[in-house]
Design a binder for these strands. Structure first.
Lengths: 215, 215
DNA sequence: GTCTATATCCCGATAGAC
DNA sequence: GTCTATCGGGATATAGAC
């Protein structure tokens, strides 16, 4: 990251940032598969070797895009689901925001979940994901006991994620109307899960009066 | 599939089927992005031009894999969720089977949902999806009024899909243990959604006071 | 940090022979 | 239906100059 005000002699003051932006642009137009370092370089008017001064390879650029995606994701979450309403409504708002993000920033969502990027090989991505995950858990915890919060969190996250993915598959139709439909459904599902959250916890603790341990 | 004794010489009895199988194999090893007609041909010991006698291009082979995926998906569903138990349990079993399929046939699931294949451009895929979708709706319909069945179906499908996708992302861990954890969670979420299905319907019709019938 | 130039490799797709 | 041969294109990555 070059210091600000360092608008230099060549083309861009910050090729690194420009590459990230162009990657997003390109993925939006042609999908993840249609993105390449070479094409991004061409579009920016730099040599195809220039990106290697900032990224070791193609995957590292994608990882940088993923980091940016999580940061934006987190930022939009704070503004979308930070009203001090009832806890259940906050959680529903998060699910709604999750789906809306997927609809509004499809290329970013594609990089996060459809690019086949191995996040374990890129610690920066994991680190960028953490605050996002924490904010999510903070919304869930007041709604259930400590032990059960993990179950509710997993359920809501999966539900939101499923709606987002199917939205991008076109299952809810096209355009902004589809986004709102999917987001609204995800929010309702969340409220339903909160109401019936007692069914989500696994009866793995035989101390409870319930029986039927599963195989 | 080919004649059992027709081994050597140059060709297979059924190159088309062999290509589909090899494609699945390859995708399992290298991901969708690492699959190519050339590599599949090499692995089968045929010329790189041979596949073009059976598929117009790369996408058509992927579409054939997708058709196979939906057929297998449907077949496993019938055996997994066909017990005549309570309706809610059947639906939960479908969600469980959905996730298990993703875990057991990851390459097929990848082709269906992560290959970026435009299903609208391949009618065979849509056709193969239909029986699957029908079986799903047949499980949902007895559980809610006609008008509301679409809401419950969308909710359960999205929940199952979300668990499946996050399973393949590694969010539930690795190995068969992760598959069963995700599948069990999807089943529980389904039961929770059934119980609170009255929250899923949109109140767009203020004239109808009659909510979903209990069961 | 960027450029020029290049090495290497792979891929999709077609033409024409058998 | 499959093979041989090939064209045209594009990608990753490195080396060395400025």
């Amino acid at each position: 990251m070059p210091g600000p005000g360092k608008r230099d002699r060549y083309h861009h003051g910050d090729l690194r940032a420009a590459l990230i932006g162009t990657a997003i642009e390109l993925i939006g137009e042609r999908g993840v598969r249609g993105f390449s370092l070479a094409e991004a370089s061409r579009r920016l008017g730099v040599a195809v070797s220039a990106p290697y001064a900032h990224f070791a390879d193609r995957d590292e650029l994608l990882a940088a895009v993923a980091v940016h995606a999580y940061e934006l994701f987190y930022a939009e979450f704070l503004t979308e689901a930070n009203q001090d309403t009832a806890h259940a409504d906050r959680l529903a708002a998060m699910a709604r925001g999750y789906v809306r993000f997927a609809g509004a920033h499809r290329p970013l969502f594609d990089v996060l979940f459809r690019a086949g990027l191995d996040k374990d090989r890129h610690p920066e991505v994991k680190a960028a994901e953490q605050p996002f995950a924490d904010a999510f858990m903070d919304c869930v915890r007041p709604l259930s006991g400590e032990a059960a919060s993990e179950d509710l969190a997993a359920a809501v996250e999966a539900a939101a994620h499923g709606h987002a993915m199917l939205l991008l598959e076109g299952d809810f139709g096209q355009g902004n109307e589809a986004v709102e439909l999917a987001a609204e459904r995800a929010a309702r599902v969340t409220l339903a899960l909160v109401e019936s959250r007692h069914l989500l916890t696994r009866p793995s603790r035989p101390s409870a009066p319930q029986a039927t341990p599963n195989a």
